[in-house]
């Protein structure tokens, strides 16, 4: 079993292809879409969590790349810069997944990356700009 967060970039020619359907049907993977958008140039971006059998997962990645999609693997999508954080707590009611919570009674903030769904709401909601997105390790 593997579980990975990925960003797929679709050139405009592929935006209308049933990619998700194929990932599920042909590779028996579970797909959890975190974010999807299409820019004015009709290029698509899909952020998702993919899980399933390891060899199927690898075959699916190859298939996606062969089709002309750009695949980025998200290892640590959102980072909490602890030294920038003032522990104000403002993000605790913004984060929808419970990844940013206030420890009580200490009243310090804690970031639990494993709960983060990469919605990116905290990036602009944090007044001290302590949350950052990091796209590392592109495949």
């Amino acid at each position: 079993m593997v579980k990975q967060k990925l960003v797929l970039r679709f050139p405009s020619s592929l935006v209308e292809q049933p990619v998700i359907y194929n990932l599920i049907k042909n590779f028996d993977l579970m797909v959890n879409i975190l974010r999807a958008d299409i820019n004015p140039k009709k290029e698509g971006r899909l952020m998702m969590e993919l899980s399933g059998d390891e060899s199927n997962f690898r075959r699916a990645l190859e298939w996606l790349q062969k089709k002309g999609l750009e695949v980025m693997q998200l290892k640590q999508q959102i980072i909490w810069q602890e030294d920038r954080c003032t522990h104000c707590g403002a993000c605790s009611v913004i984060c929808p997944s419970g990844a940013l919570v206030l420890n009580r009674p200490e009243m310090t903030i804690r970031f639990m990356e494993e709960k983060c769904v990469v919605c990116e709401l905290c990036l602009r909601a944090c007044p001290a700009r302590a949350m950052e997105t990091l796209l590392d390790s592109a495949i």
């Binding site: 104000c88 707590g89 403002a90 009611v93």
Partner: peptide, 25 residues
């Protein structure tokens, strides 16, 4: 407020500080 939720007209509403209590301490 510091408990994390308050009651407003019978509704439970989550609270958040903007002033850092950890910093104040």
């Amino acid at each position: 407020l510091k408990s994390g939720q308050i009651n407003i007209n019978g509704r439970t509403v989550p609270t958040a500080p903007l002033s850092s209590y950890a910093g104040a301490r």
